[in-house]
Design a binder for these strands. Structure first.
Length: 154
DNA sequence: AAGGCTGTCAACCGCACGTCT
DNA sequence: AAGACGTGCGGTTGACAGCCT
């Protein structure tokens, strides 16, 4: 878990990590008034953030029913299956995984599952088994050529 | 020990869509 | 019908931590 930071960036708030105080303000406000009205919420809650940021922070991090921690094997399998069916519809995929958010699923896919599929010889874009076996890359230019051939074949 | 590299994840941005007037 | 506004979604970025050399 990342620590709360106090950088110069926080003067403008944009791009700055949320502080404990900001989180508390948001939680308290939503406890009382409920979700919604994201445009007016920051001002009403005394936050120097845009509504979008508040919504994202709540949905991805502060919501009480969020399940945090590692994805299990069964969750991985489910995500792979759902991605094959739905494509990059992360919110739909996350909807099938209780306690998981679209952002979390998307990050997990990009950092873990994509590689997992590639190692298994499966194209993560179309979930088709590659004809040619995976071999270690020797020359960076080979990678570009491979990419081009994938693009041209789709 | 230190500097570079890579992986992870929170957060932002831009666009699309739905609703309201 | 169409423009304004609010919200949701997916792609991308940036910062940090840990590993490697």
């Amino acid at each position: 878990m990342r620590k709360y930071l106090f950088s110069e960036k926080q003067h403008s708030k944009k791009g700055a990590n949320w502080t404990y105080e900001e989180d508390q303000k948001l939680i308290d406000y939503i406890k009382i008034h409920g979700e919604g009205n994201w445009r007016t919420l920051p001002k009403a809650a005394g936050l120097q953030r845009c509504g979008k940021s508040c919504r994202l922070r709540w949905i991805n991090y502060l919501k009480p029913d969020i399940k945090r921690g590692n994805f299990g094997e069964d969750e991985d399998d489910l995500i792979i299956k759902l991605h094959a069916l739905l494509g990059n519809r992360w919110s739909l995929i996350a909807g099938r995984l209780p306690g998981r958010t679209d952002n979390e699923v998307k990050n997990h896919w990009n950092s873990n599952l994509k590689k997992k599929l590639i190692n298994m010889g499966i194209n993560p874009n179309n979930h088709r088994v590659n004809q040619t076996p995976i071999r270690p890359k020797q020359d960076p230019s080979e990678e570009e050529e491979e990419e081009e051939s994938v693009n041209s074949s789709s």
